[in-house]
Amino acid sequence: MIEVRNLVKRFAEVTALNNVSLQVDDGELFGLIGPDGAGKTTLFRVISSLLLFDEGHVEVAGKNPVSDYAAIRQMIGYMPGKFSLYQDLSILENLRFFTAIFKTTLEENYDLIKDIYVQIEPFKHRPAGKLSGGMKQKLALCCALVHKPRLLLLDEPTTGVDAVSRIEFWEILKRLKQQGITIMVSTPYMDEASLCERIALIQQGQIMGVDSPEGIIKTFSKPLFAVKADDFYSLITDLRDWNEALSAFSFGEYVHLTMRSESSTAMQVESYLFSRNHSSVSVKAISANVEDSFMYLMLKKEESQ
């Protein structure tokens, strides 16, 4: 559905996208994972034909976003990161407006948005500006869906939305995927990565890896331990002081400790911590998650630079 090869986009002196290549297959739920300023929004704008690019090759459903932008715009549903509804119009007025500009009616594609719409219907006369974050996102999604797009581009739909609404939102996306819509979604929340079929990790305009979440995790080749002790803060600082440790990052109530040597054991970590006078130490060998992998790749990139 989407094919991006060696894409470069510069703004004045800043290189927003640096040699980006990725592919999104038909009917896939694809995640673009990275922090603010990584280039996610720029990539979305290039794909949706809103921005021209400097180098590389981009194709959306076989169409070129530079020359064939009209065809692409007809076929995609785009939800920009900055919330994009009219705050002074009610839910219903927003929906009616967006159906009208796509030359369709609410009734025509109602079955597609029905599941989402019933959740916000009780507030249909309330102005969009007075909705909660979760409801706004649902409304925006409805508006992006009214014309039955083949490709849905969602730029950070869950940013600033609470945990419950985020879960609901992802459930909705899964249902849409089952109806055959290709979805490309970006998020700064690493825990959402595992909900996608394939993901691309992006940092400072560069793709650090494109694969299934499991595939990304496999690139994490070092031993990883979840460590816990009574004094959490000095636990972190002590682990960082340790030569054997590659990195130590807090993860909920644990510290995730990555070791330099492949042959490191939990015993080794425990004895080090006892020598530093920590109490109630617990060390477990664990497998990495997407966030561990992201940080690992970030460190590797920094080292290579």
Partner: peptide, 13 residues
Amino acid sequence: EMGTMEVLLVSPL
């Protein structure tokens, strides 16, 4: 400013 222009631009309008 509100980002609605982006949506209008990608629409068939």
